[in-house]
Amino acid sequence: MDWIVPLILTVITASTPLLLSATGELITEKSGVLNLGVEGMMLIGAITGFAVTVSTGSAIIGIIAAAIAGMAIALIFAFLTLTLMANQVATGLALTIFGVGFSALVGSGFVGFAIEPLPSLHIPFISDIPVIGPILFGQDFLVYLSIFMVIASGWFLTKTRAGLILKAVGDSHESAHAIGYNVIGIRYMATLFGGAMSGLAGAYLSLVYTPMWAENMTAGRGWIALALVVFATWRPGRLLAGAYMFGCISVLQLHAQSAGINVPSQFMSMLPYLATVIVLVIISSDQTKIRLNAPACIGKAFRPAQ
């Protein structure tokens, strides 16, 4: 049973970036904004986190910088879609194209650099308990943050006044505006939160998961995070389950070879993408479920009447 602890540890590392970015996107979408640029924001977070960590020698500064970079790029998206009312789908795609180019440009000077991995929690004795010690008490702080944020998001959306306002804005911007809420302002904040979380997710990839910088290193994880939000039918609890399920699938390909499963590696690498399609199909075919949970105003521009 020696292999089980390392296996669970790799699942956690694979799931954390998905969970971070999907939590951010869930809040963004709940406010009625569809930001398809998660992949681009993650890449920018990844290179910023890595470059700043290499330059300053501090992973903490790198992680903070990654979150800020994610917010900065999300701000461009927010300005274009919320202030200038550009099409959200097209702008999200632009964000991803820009993120790929920008990160590759900045990253070209950081290929091949090595960094210290992020320190993990270590509580004497407790972290040394067999099995549950390393799994529950031996992670780096971003893992705990990702779990905390998804739980906090669930609490925020259902138990707080601010969360209810956010949902109201996403479900009916006209009524929310009529009651006197600042629809655009709230959407700006939700979009920036999504950007920060995607930035963190990217930093997790370049600082913990690999840890190094490579062009396009997100490899579609931003898009999988978007699919996870649909899979979770916009509910944080299901998001947690979904992210870990996808973590398991992506780890499967790494362990299939050693388990003696003789399938060409490319087919194993297809698994997360095929799983995403299958999961989308299963969830989307239940139209009532989607309609009950999807923010009614998602993707629609709002212009307050003057």
């Binding site: 550009a86 964000l95 820009f98 180019g101 920008f102 062009e215």
Partner: peptide, 18 residues
């Protein structure tokens, strides 16, 4: 770096949408 191309393309689309 050749990535400048992608950067330009992204910026162009941003400006266009704006």
């Amino acid at each position: 770096p050749s990535a400048v191309t992608g950067l330009f393309q992204g910026i162009l689309l941003f400006f266009l949408l704006g």
